[in-house]
């Protein structure tokens, strides 16, 4: 089961995600990301994936859609906390390099 909670800093939203991102749960992630980017117009959205054990192609598709939305709006989408499973899937998709990836939360929210 996917759980998403939001923390709000100055001009930044951190979304803490835990669980598996798959066909059943990726619409929830997509909705949460697009809400921050399109509706709330947050300039920087940080996705904490430390507690994500699995991501499939529908999850990658949600991330790509959010990335495109952020580019269209001139905002930033930053991922951090990628474990081996998530990193492998992004590498397999050859999309790892298109995302802005930070090693730590401090790096992700640094001015």
């Amino acid at each position: 089961m996917l759980q998403i909670s939001a923390r709000y800093l100055d001009q930044t939203t951190i979304l803490d995600v835990s669980g598996d991102i798959d066909l059943a749960s990726s619409p929830e992630l997509r909705k949460a990301l697009l809400r921050e980017l399109r509706e709330l117009r947050i300039p920087r959205v940080v996705l904490n994936l430390k507690a994500v054990k699995y991501v499939d192609s529908s999850g990658v598709a949600s991330l790509v859609e959010a990335l495109k939305a952020s580019r269209d709006l001139g905002s930033r989408l930053i991922l951090f906390g990628l474990n081996s499973a998530v990193r492998e899937v992004l590498q397999l998709s050859k999309l790892l390099k298109i995302f802005e990836i930070a090693e730590t939360e401090e790096q992700a929210v640094a001015p």
Binding site: D56, S57, S62, V89, S93, K94
Partner: peptide
Amino acid sequence: PLDDVRSGGLGLHFMRES
């Protein structure tokens, strides 16, 4: 083509690579 950055179409690629 994987240089085409867009959503979807990855599932079969993942299966073949895995």
